[in-house]
């Protein structure tokens, strides 16, 4: 055994920013997270040059998965061009040399804040979701040690009570985003603050989803072909946002999740939230040959 065999060559910085031991820990934890779908796995959550709460969890998973051949797409609330998405995309490209894209169909790795793209993801794609609060039980149990025990016991009665109270008070479930969902019939997870519109896209999907919370130091995952069932009562069906009839004023895309743009006269116009889908729709209507993938929702209805 020589000194040479015990050391590594000097490098100006680690590939993909994270050092090898941080990557190994995330590898171990993501594997366990896949093995127990929906269960939150604690991890160390290293420092990255970005403030906690701005997607550091997702960024660390992306940095671990990335290699020079990984095509990366980053979205923030559906948009590729918002500040958070653009900064993360540029950072990932700079630390890895990986090519970037805005096209969902061309991406290998999609890091997303609070949306799942409208085009169906394939089995060779990995979706990394940034999670601000990984604990679905927090509104009903602020003590995370007790919440962990409740997960261990599959004691989710208070989640049902919370939904029941919302229905009694307001006539419907008021949970707009982060709709609590039962994964593989065992763990209730938060799907990250994606709209209700996006939760059915996780159910029996072809792609792997990794959800990572950097500030809260938790990773959970939804493997492909895994049941993800929003918590609902038998007689009060799950409802997605009523965006099926809306048309995007800029692109003419119809039947997708929309951003509402309030107007001075008190009315609203709508714009498709998945910005790349809007761009593709505009370009194809201008006569370009654009490959628009199959979408999860067709004519405003989730395809079965």
């Amino acid at each position: 055994m020589s000194l040479k065999s015990l050391t590594k060559d000097w490098e100006p910085m680690s590939y993909g920013f994270l050092d090898a031991s941080a990557k190994r820990e995330i590898r171990r934890k993501t594997l366990k997270a896949i093995a127990v779908p929906g269960c939150q796995m604690p991890y160390a959550s290293r420092e990255v040059p970005m403030a906690r709460g701005w997607g550091t969890g997702g960024l660390q998973v992306s940095c671990t998965l990335i290699n020079p051949k990984t095509t990366v797409k980053v979205i923030d609330q559906g948009a590729d061009d918002s500040v958070n998405a653009a900064s993360i995309r540029r950072f990932l490209a700079r630390v890895s040399g990986a090519p970037t894209t805005t096209d969902t169909l061309k991406a290998d790795l999609i890091q997303s804040r609070h949306r799942i793209p409208e085009e169906v993801l394939r089995e060779d794609q990995i979706l990394v979701l940034q999670v601000p609060n990984p604990e679905p039980l927090r509104p009903v149990q602020p003590n995370m040690s007790i919440a962990r025990q409740m997960h261990a016991d599959a004691d989710y009665g208070r989640m049902w009570l919370q939904l029941y109270e919302q229905i009694v008070r307001s006539g419907r479930v008021m949970q707009g985003a982060s709709y609590p969902s039962l994964v593989h019939g065992r763990f209730v997870m938060t799907p990250s603050p994606i709209p209700r519109w996006d939760v059915p896209k996780m159910h029996m999907a072809k792609h792997l989803t990794i959800l990572s919370a950097g500030r809260e130091k938790r990773i959970h995952a939804v493997p492909p072909f895994t049941r993800v069932e929003p918590l609902v009562f038998d007689d009060v069906p799950y409802r997605v946002e009523e965006h099926g009839d809306l048309t995007c004023t800029r692109s003419g895309a119809k039947g997708y999740f929309m951003n509402e743009i309030p107007q001075p006269d008190g009315t609203s116009t709508y714009e498709v939230s998945d910005s790349e889908l809007g761009v593709k729709t505009i370009r194809s209507s201008e006569g370009e040959t654009i490959d628009i993938g199959q979408t999860w929702y067709q004519n405003g209805e989730m395809a079965q």
Partner: peptide, 8 residues
Amino acid sequence: HPIPSDFE
């Protein structure tokens, strides 16, 4: 950008 080592 950093070049991945063989190990990486």
